[in-house]
Design a protein around this nucleic acid. Structure first.
Ligand SMILES: [Mn+2]
Ligand SMILES: [Mn+2]
Ligand SMILES: [Zn+2]
Ligand SMILES: [Zn+2]
Lengths: 142, 142
DNA sequence: AAACTATATTATAATTATTCTAAACTATTG
DNA sequence: CAATAGTTTAGAATAATTATAATATAGTTT
C-alpha cells in the first residue's frame, strides 16, 4: 500500500508532473495486491468505481502511454480489438482465458527456459514471451 | 503453383462457393513459395498489384474471415492496431522484427518443446505460441 | 506571492480498423 | 432457364485510439 508521497516522488523522478489525475491513476493501478491486466476501458471504469472520480478518457490514454514509456506499464497484444496493459513489467508469459477474455500471468518457472537456437542474423532478441490460450473443454476454438 | 480448378475444389469441399473474388484471393494468398503474413490492407494492395483487380474491401474482410473459419488462415496478434493473418496454419512461433514490423516464422525445432507444468485448473490448453521480438542492437525498445 | 513558462487536462473532432446493411448480383440446383 | 440461397458491394455505422486547441495547473523566477 503505497502512499501518495511515494507516487509523487516516483513521478518526479521520471520527469512527470505529479498531477491530481496521475496520482489517482497511480492509486488505481499500483495499490493492489496482484498484477493488473487491463484495457483503457477497464481502467476508466475502475477509476470511476474506486475513486468516484471522473478523469477524461484522453487523460487516461495519455497517462497510460506516459507510464508505459517510463516503463511502469507494459502493453500486451492478445487481441486486435483493443490494447491490454500490464502492471507486471517483467518479462513473463501469459495464459489467456478465451472463455472470460482474461489475461493471467504465468509464473516464469512454470515453463522451462526457452532457448532459441538460431536467431535472425544481425538482430538482437528483445523479448521472448509465451502466450498460452486456454478454454474450457467444450469451447469452440474460434 | 496451384491451378484455379484446385482452388475451386477446395472451396467447394468446404462449402464455400468458388466465386471470382474468392479465387482471385486464393491466387494471391496461396500461390506463393513462402508463408504470407499480412494485414487486410497488405492483401488488398497485393490484389491490386498482382492481379490489377479491385475487390471491395468488405469482400476482402469477408473472405479472410471465411478462410480463417475454415482453417485456411490463422490470425496473429502482435500489435493491437491491426490484425495480422498467416497462411501457415500450423501451430508455430514467430519472430517479430521491430525495425521493419515484419513477422517471420520460427521453425518449431528452433525452440525446445514447451512444457507447461501447471495449467489453469478446469481449462484446456488450446495453443502455446512464442513471440520473439527482435531489433537491431541500437534500436530504442519503444 | 505574483508572474511566467512549460506541461497537462479536457471536450471534442478526426482518424483508422473493422463490421453492418441492404440492394444488386451470381452460383447452384432443379 | 427460373428459383433460391449465398455473395458482393458501396457506403454507413461503430469502436478504439489519436489529434487539436483552448483552458488549467505545476514548477520556476522574480
Ligand atoms: Mn497503441
Ligand atoms: Mn480495431
Ligand atoms: Zn502479465
Ligand atoms: Zn507464421
Amino acid at each position: 500500500m503505497l502512499k501518495n508521497s511515494q507516487f509523487i516522488d516516483k513521478l518526479r523522478q521520471s520527469g512527470l508532473r505529479p498531477t491530481k489525475q496521475r496520482l489517482k491513476i497511480c492509486e488505481v493501478l499500483f495499490n493492489r495486491e496482484k498484477t493488473f491486466h487491463f484495457t483503457i476501458n477497464d481502467l476508466a471504469k475502475s477509476i470511476l468505481e474506486k475513486l468516484n472520480e471522473k478523469i477524461s478518457l484522453a487523460t487516461v490514454y495519455n497517462t497510460v502511454h506516459a507510464f508505459k514509456k517510463k516503463g511502469y506499464l507494459k502493453e500486451i497484444s492478445i487481441n486486435s480489438d483493443k490494447s491490454y496493459f500490464d502492471t507486471n513489467i517483467t518479462n513473463h508469459h501469459h495464459f489467456f482465458d478465451e472463455d472470460t477474455n482474461q489475461l493471467i500471468d504465468c509464473d516464469n518457472d512454470n515453463i522451462e527456459n526457452i532457448n532459441i537456437k538460431n536467431n535472425i542474423t544481425g538482430k538482437k532478441v528483445k523479448s521472448v514471451e509465451v502466450l498460452i490460450k486456454v478454454a474450457s473443454d467444450n469451447q469452440n476454438q474460434n
